[in-house]
Write a protein that binds this DNA or RNA. Sequence first.
DNA 1: TTATGTAGGTTGCATATACAACTATAGTGG
DNA 2: CCACTATAGTTGTATATGCAACCTACATAA
Lengths: 145, 145
Amino acid sequence: MDLNRTAKSIADDCIGYRIRMLSRIFSRMYDDALRPHGVRFSQMNILTAVVLKGPIQPVEIGRLLSLEKSTLSRNVRIMEENGWLKSEPVSSGVGHRLRITKKGERLYHAAAPAWRHAQSQIEKLLGAEGARAISRVADQIQENE
Amino acid sequence: MDLNRTAKSIADDCIGYRIRMLSRIFSRMYDDALRPHGVRFSQMNILTAVVLKGPIQPVEIGRLLSLEKSTLSRNVRIMEENGWLKSEPVSSGVGHRLRITKKGERLYHAAAPAWRHAQSQIEKLLGAEGARAISRVADQIQENE
DNA sequence: TTATGTAGGTTGCATATACAACTATAGTGG
DNA sequence: CCACTATAGTTGTATATGCAACCTACATAA
């Protein structure tokens, strides 16, 4: 097949290209809204996991978010340096568990409205049907993992 | 509202968290398939744009893929160093345009089957309905941008 | 013609992401 | 008790991503 035709079929079908583009667009919108609070969207996602499931081991967050352990190791370090998370050794066994600090809780409360603002912008862009479709797909993938 | 409740509502509704997770999962699958060819998925996306629209200015690729110009500046440099792209000055005016090289064309041809393999894995995961839903959403967002 | 603006690009800085290789620790089979 | 394996985590290396600040070349208004 000729090069141009190959490229066209790739561009037409490629789920990955579309997902990455959506990821960049939406992440920028969340990050814009969160910037005044000095926290990134990806960090909010980690904080959310810790709030809901903490104390929790990094490796477990990795499973929840499909994040590689080395990525998490570095991201968590930054958040500890910012004073949002603290870690405690696991009672018996290897590893440690993460908790949110008071400072982290204040940040989370303060930033939540900005998150909501970005979220409603995005829902407007997507429409209710589009938002539902994405949630459905994501939840289905997470099950099959 | 209490912290846990806030986090729960964020986790339940968050489109961005879902999109980022899908982006990581799918990108890993494409990258796994492409690794033997020494090219990354994000690079294939840029190559595809150049094949379809080249000669093309970086800033124009940025508009197509929603990529910041500084990101593109660096990504393109790596691809030039790899000998896949070459740039020529614009006849009149500032900036330059990118073309794919012979080596780039060979790479693209060689890597396309790997791309197709990952693509079909992902479509199986998503189901035809899920894949269509994502394409529909992405195309709609791109229009409204 | 000069001041101003605009568009394309690069660079400094920071974070995000993953793979590979490594360390440390716990559990398990001989 | 020892060798082996599996799990959690860290570190080296590389790419991806974006913002802010800057540079340059062109366009345009005063």
